[in-house]
Design a protein around this nucleic acid. Structure first.
Lengths: 143, 143
DNA sequence: AAACACCTTGTAGCAACTTCAAGGTCAAGC
DNA sequence: GCTTGACCTTGAAGTTGCTACAAGGTGTTT
């Protein structure tokens, strides 16, 4: 299987595949005589796994850790559970942040009900007055 | 006021101030005899405005547009309202995406209740089996 | 032989900064 | 006078997860 076939089967682009190889998320492929990358079913499984993790918004670092845990022969999956729990916490946290943000935005939006001169616009006044409590550090990679 | 003072008053770093200047979010500062940047109250107001917008997760582009709208003398604030409405939609969308993600993650987490060999771990099986419906394009800048 | 789709490598770009390197300026302390 | 330390200057590179070239080699079809 050439890189384009692999990519199509996994629903991503060839560039992404090469990028994952560089990142160590996929093992370096075998090369055919013409120097083209050559893949088998195992590679496809692995790539699908990685893409599934990405679909769940895991970082490359999290995926690396997960792969390492999987490949430790005879290990139990406690580490896997912990990793997933931590990831779920990231998501929960980001949801909470965005809900709070939404409240602030709705409140700001309330301050201007009709079109008027920009000098009188409640939204602009609100943006000028706000005291952006030194913005919280990110505890999550989710933007 | 030197750049460090300005930054402290606005709750950001000097690097951020210089970066905003380069981005055109702050006008280029006057220079003192020693070539240090020199700021007044107007600059602080402007920087605070920008930081408040950022605290609401607006992009630099959105902030640029907002500043342009504000500086159009005699304009009404219809554009401001539209911009804010669009931004609120971005946030709503991202919240919806994350809530769906959370559901998927919770379902996956359910698949492994106790520690066991990695070969039997329901989470890893789930990650292998998932069919990552070709991941949706982003309609929002919020990660 | 030319057209076309595919492969190779390497580099640059996105957003919004942060970090680093290498140096200039200024006030205080010995 | 000389050093220490805190501040300032510029410019380049790193972060994350890709995407988009550019410049060229390979392979099949017409």
């Amino acid at each position: 299987m050439k890189i384009g076939d692999l990519a199509r089967h996994a629903g991503c682009t060839t560039e992404t595949v090469r990028f994952y190889e560089k990142e160590g998320l996929l093992p370096a492929a075998d090369r055919a005589a013409n120097n083209y990358r050559s893949y088998g079913a195992r590679h496809l499984e692995r790539l699908r796994f990685v893409r599934n993790c990405r679909a769940l918004d895991m970082t490359h670092e999290e995926i690396h850790q997960l792969l390492a845990l999987m490949e430790t022969a005879g290990a139990d999956c406690g580490g896997v559970n912990e990793l997933l729990d931590a990831h779920i916490q990231h998501v929960d946290l980001r949801i909470a942040e965005l809900l709070q943000l939404k409240q602030q935005l709705d409140a700001l939006r309330q301050r201007c009900q009709q079109q008027q001169g920009v000098d009188a616009c409640g939204i602009l006044l609100g943006l000028a007055e706000m005291e952006a409590s030194a913005r919280p550090e990110r505890h999550t990679h989710l933007g």
